[in-house]
């Protein structure tokens, strides 16, 4: 009886995995209607969302970041809000404020007017242009999934997903995010400039009379279910060990760290980096239709999960060393099998 039950549950899991994969494929396909190319960005964003994390997108303006977020929100049937960060943006501008409202009976009372953060998907555009005070207000909400105004605490509705962007070129008058706040982003994705074919496609799509429309393919509840399901993916010890060894290698003081780490890195990633790798690896495994996380999943997740968590030293900054190069070198040097 027990064996039969187990077989039954096993088959159920298989179905769920297949459904998970199918849903993600649908999301990809729907987003793909609007977003040309950028498959890695789309996958990264979807994976982060399913993993329950936030994403920092880095790229020059005009690459379709806002479009991506809006399309994703529409695909998932979620409420979307966009906040353009500017130096004079106040926390209340994001969180909301308490206002005196006169009732029908003429009585006046305070009413909390929710800010744009009360949405499922937030696009924090050029997040580094706001003051640290404003940044921290939003980042607190990202971490706690709740905001406190006065004596009232407001829980943010699930799913809550923030996509922050920052322009790597215009650094004047900006407030770069501190390391502690960067750590709160699950992934940092770099939006590259589209190639010629992609540009042709973009032009074709955006310069015609009829623009493509996006349909809701996954409901909000299904998304929450998928998020929970992703956490159930079993993780083998040796795979976890592999991820942790990669993490350790980002620390220059670690004996097994490669030479490039020791030379250019000031601080390595926090354990949140490993968490980000493993949770996104799980999602990736499911997206791939597998029941287990592989080392390849870890490798794929490692760079976007760690690139904003590795802090270069002066030499690294001066020489313009890219953290991606460091991470690729670390991955290359780290063996899948532990020598233990």
């Amino acid at each position: 009886m027990a064996t039969e039950a187990q077989t039954a549950t096993g088959a159920e899991v298989e179905k769920q995995v297949a459904a998970f994969k199918a849903d993600v494929d649908r999301i990809r396909a729907e987003v793909g209607k609007m977003i040309v190319g950028h498959h890695d960005i789309v996958d990264g964003v979807v994976m982060s969302m399913l993993a329950g994390g936030n994403v920092l997108l880095e790229g020059v303006p005009g690459l379709g970041k806002t479009m991506l977020v809006r399309t994703l929100a529409e695909t998932l049937g979620l409420h979307f809000s966009r906040i353009q960060f500017t130096p004079d943006l106040m926390p209340t501008d994001i969180l909301g404020t308490t206002m005196i409202v006169e009732g029908e009976d003429g009585s006046k009372h305070f009413t909390f007017e929710k800010g744009p953060i009360f949405a499922h998907i937030i696009l924090a555009d050029e997040v580094n242009r706001a003051t640290p005070k404003t940044q921290s207000a939003m980042l607190e909400a990202m971490q706690e999934r709740s905001i406190t105004i006065g004596k009232e605490t407001y829980k943010l509705e699930e799913p809550f997903f923030v996509l922050a962007t920052q322009n790597p070129l215009e650094m004047e008058g900006t407030y770069p995010l501190p390391e502690a706040q960067l750590d709160r982003f699950l992934f940092k994705l770099r939006v590259r400039f589209p190639n010629l074919d992609e540009l042709h496609t973009i032009m074709d799509r955006t310069t015609q009379r009829s623009e493509p429309t996006v349909n809701e393919v996954v409901t909000r509840d299904r998304l929450i279910e998928m998020k929970r399901f992703a956490r159930d993916v079993p993780l083998a010890r040796h795979v976890q060990d592999y991820a942790l060894r990669i993490l350790q290698s980002t620390h220059p003081e670690h004996p097994g760290a490669p030479e490039i780490t020791k030379r250019y890195v000031r601080f390595g990633s926090s354990p949140r980096g490993a968490q980000a790798i493993l949770i996104t690896a799980k999602v990736r495994a499911l997206i791939d239709g597998r029941f287990n996380v592989s080392c390849e999943d870890v490798r794929q997740s490692a760079v976007p999960a760690l690139r904003h968590r590795v802090i270069l030293n002066f030499e690294g900054e001066a020489e313009g060393v890219d953290t991606d190069d460091i991470l690729n070198e670390i991955i290359k040097k780290t063996l899948e099998t532990s020598k233990k």
């Binding site: 549950t9 096993g10 899991v13 298989e14 079993p234 029941f291 287990n292």
Partner: peptide, 17 residues
């Protein structure tokens, strides 16, 4: 006992393997 093979997912994974 760190990961229970009683979990559905683990069983499914083993079957898949």
């Amino acid at each position: 006992g760190s990961v229970s093979t009683e979990s559905d997912f683990a069983r499914a994974q083993i079957d898949d393997a």
